[in-house]
Write a protein that binds this DNA or RNA. Structure first.
Lengths: 216, 216, 216, 216
DNA sequence: AATGAATGAGGGTTCATTCAT
DNA sequence: CATGAATGAACCCTCATTCAT
């Protein structure tokens, strides 16, 4: 379940407060600049620790970045604990999923930006080092959810479960990018207009209508 | 309709062959490494021209990158000329759209990777310099297509056109990323399985079923 | 009397108009940027000739620069033809000298800036290539002028002619720098105040009072 | 009184010895080559430090240069502490001034060469960054000295104080350039002859005679 | 004679990482 | 354990000069 560890032992021994600063600063920098344009020395400065310390916590820039990515997955996992895939109808579950995704994108915008960066071809050597990641970790949850809904007759009998799961995840991913990245944010405004694009309820309602129709 | 020009006059004066090498090499490098990790000198070397020449064709690394991105849009526009939004039913048009997107992602994988990189927060200063881009240029085409389908009664009367257009574009974008980026390629395999993920007809059929149900 | 020639034969064969543009542009660039920061290609562009042509007129950047410097000496020599060292009293001659220097600094500011640059240690390899130059060419004129004035009893009998000549030239040189270089221009304003510093008559009168007292 | 600081904090923390090497090497290079022709990497090499270190001491080539210029002003200020403008007659003070200028030009030839470079039009963007500089900082000292001499009746009653101050500074400036720059050094020899030009006492006596006559 | 594309050494600057204190 | 000065390869870009057309 847990990944290889990307931080050194020393990092576990420092104060929670210090850890937080490092996380906050590093995530903000990586999210804003992208992995390659981020300067490790700047992170140390902004976090008010020495570069030496930073290197005593993390083996390399790569590891620091991956530790941040991992932290994001952790937070997402925690958020998805509220999903309760067994409670209510599939569509109630999916609506909860979209709400959680929305919350996450708003609260943890920087993590979403980091995932977008990670999905980039140039960083494949980094994403490969992550055994688990957002997109892949929910394959089974989604599939199970849809398969059980199919068994219960909540969705149509001939639903292509793998494709439906893939489709569902696509909606989640695009939703998060649309909320987190400047680029996609301007795109969603172009499609939905300024007001609609900021109306969370309406967006979720719109997406739910699509999901219901295509799954029923 | 046309963007600001990102190449210098000199670039128009060299042989078509030389231009091609520069394009091919630069696109491959940017796609594989990402903007920031790409080395201008390496591009020059691989293209067998001097750095000085490269800089006599393009003002800066930024401009070279944007010129490549623009070239990609051009090719996409050309490909989309085959869409013929007025011919056949909406669903026939959409199926053509998916096929074109598929073709493009297969033939011009590198361009898709470049767009993914461009959508990254760290490169927003670059994407802002592009007045036109893949995602934004088809807003009106999609909306018009769906509005006219609505008028013709091909889709349901209460279809939320902006959301449907956004949704359609999301499918296209995710399809292209899924085919082009290593990261998303492994994700699609996880969802659909090795065989399904390589079966173009089946994927398009699966997506079309979703689209038809949600629009009808 | 004449220096080594710094331009190639070809330069003599082109139209007077073209020669003028080259001179005007090159002088302006060298004066504004300094020798080292000046870009030969920029000069060619601004003069609307090709770099190839420029190099067919002048062997190198060095030669182009020296040709410009030489042109300046030529103009100064022409201006000093109006000095008429034999006409009137020494002080009348010196007042004419100051007026000529003033005129030259105003009309040929760029040349004055070039001489300042040339006097710089880093360009000593260039100034050495000039057999004749502004500062040195008038040594004899000044000395002769003062010696004859001494003989005529216009100046005091114990006048130290070499020192007086040196002193006179210092006044001319500082006057020209004070008028031509931004740096010295702000310095003269600091000493004399805005109004005085722009009042040619008053400055010359002030200097003449000094000269008369020290020579008489 | 003090300028903006042109070095980084790190520079203050290194050994005095290291600071000295950097100063010595940088000053020698800038003086000999001029700002534009000086190579930062060469300075680092000659000072036996890494380029990285040099850039941890100074933000840029510009700052390194200005830090050197500032150091020169500091030394000049220190030297001029020996002027004692209140002690003795004006002419005694002025004679001390000329001696200090002579000493400075001999001991700190490189600084004089740097000032000459700085006064160049092409480096006006640098001289503008210096709030204080040799030429401007003594305006008030000179004017006060002459005004008080006028009050005391040591100089003639109708002395044009601003012009006299300007004239005095011109003598100092030209003296320093004449001693420091190869170009002006050969010029002074042309005027005064080899022997005279190297006879400090005689030069100062000659200049003092001029000053006394013109001020009395 | 004129053109201007091509060259590539060289220059200023950055930054991940090391290591002595 | 913490510090931050030190390192130097690497990067983007410039420009004097050449030479094929």
């Amino acid at each position: 379940m847990s990944n290889t560890v990307f931080y050194k032992d020393t990092f576990t021994k420092i104060s929670e407060e210090k850890k937080d600063i490092v996380f906050t600063v590093a995530i903000a920098e990586f999210a804003a600049m992208g992995y390659n344009a981020t300067n490790i020395n700047t992170i140390a400065q902004k976090a008010k620790i020495s570069i030496g310390s930073l290197y005593s916590y993390f083996e390399s820039k790569e590891d620091l970045f991956l530790a941040m990515a991992e932290k994001g997955y952790e937070l997402l996992n925690r958020a998805l604990e509220e999903l309760h895939p067994e409670e209510g109808t599939v569509f109630e579950v999916i609506e909860r999923l979209l709400n959680i995704a929305f919350d996450y994108a708003e609260k943890h915008t920087d993590f979403c930006r980091i995932y977008l960066d990670l999905s980039t071809e140039g960083l494949s050597h980094l994403s490969e080092r992550l055994t688990e990641n957002v997109e892949t970790s929910y394959v089974h949850v989604y599939k199970k959810l849809l398969a059980s809904a199919k068994a219960k007759g909540e969705v149509r009998a001939d639903l292509d479960v793998p494709m439906a799961a893939f489709f569902l995840d696509n909606i989640v991913v695009m939703l998060q990018f649309s909320l987190a990245s400047s680029y996609y944010r301007s795109r969603i405004k172009l499609y939905l207009g300024e007001d609609y694009a900021q109306d969370r309820k309406r967006i979720i309602a719109g997406l739910m209508r699509i999901v219901k129709r295509s799954f029923s």
